[in-house]
Simulated scan of single mutants.
Amino acid sequence: MSDWTWDWNPSEEFLTEGLPPGVVAEIERLATELAALGPDSVRAGSPDDREGGLRVFSLLGGRGFIQFLAVPRHECVYVCHITWTG
């Protein structure tokens, strides 16, 4: 188990405004799983050809995606952007 955590960046209110509660719950679940990966979260999602930087992870079968930043120095995964096409 990793000591990493996750957080919203800039804020939960800003990022989740207008999203259905089930989508928010799925994003929280994914963020928890990414944090559990610990340092390996810098390689999760896309792009596949490099690690670090802003990463993209598909959401609910391709109906949207999240962009996140894994910061080893902070031991934290930050959810930075959400695109939901519904």
Rank of each mutant, 00 (worst) to 15 (best):
M1E: 11
M1N: 12
M1K: 09
S2D: 05
D3P: 14
W6N: 02
D7W: 06
W8V: 06
S11D: 13
F14P: 09
F14R: 10
G18W: 04
L19E: 06
P20G: 07
P21W: 03
G22Y: 06
G22L: 09
V23Y: 03
A25C: 07
A25F: 04
I27R: 00
I27K: 00
E28C: 08
L30F: 08
L30Q: 07
L30E: 07
L30W: 06
T32W: 07
E33D: 15
A35W: 01
A36E: 11
L37Q: 03
P39G: 06
P39D: 10
S41F: 01
V42M: 02
R43G: 15
R43C: 15
A44K: 00
G45L: 04
S46R: 11
S46A: 12
P47A: 02
P47N: 04
D49G: 10
R50M: 10
G52N: 09
G52R: 05
G52V: 12
L54M: 09
L54Y: 08
L54R: 08
R55P: 00
R55V: 02
V56R: 07
F57M: 09
S58E: 15
S58G: 15
S58P: 15
S58Y: 12
S58A: 15
S58W: 13
L59C: 00
L59I: 05
L60V: 11
L60S: 06
G62H: 05
G62K: 03
G62L: 05
G62W: 02
R63N: 10
G64D: 02
F65A: 06
Q67A: 07
Q67M: 09
F68L: 03
F68E: 00
F68C: 02
F68K: 01
A70F: 06
A70K: 04
A70D: 09
H74D: 13
E75V: 04
E75S: 12
E75Q: 12
C76K: 10
C76D: 11
C76F: 09
C76A: 12
V77D: 01
V77L: 03
Y78G: 06
Y78F: 12
V79A: 04
V79L: 07
C80N: 11
C80H: 12
H81C: 13
H81D: 11
I82G: 02
T83R: 07
T83I: 10
T85A: 10
G86C: 11
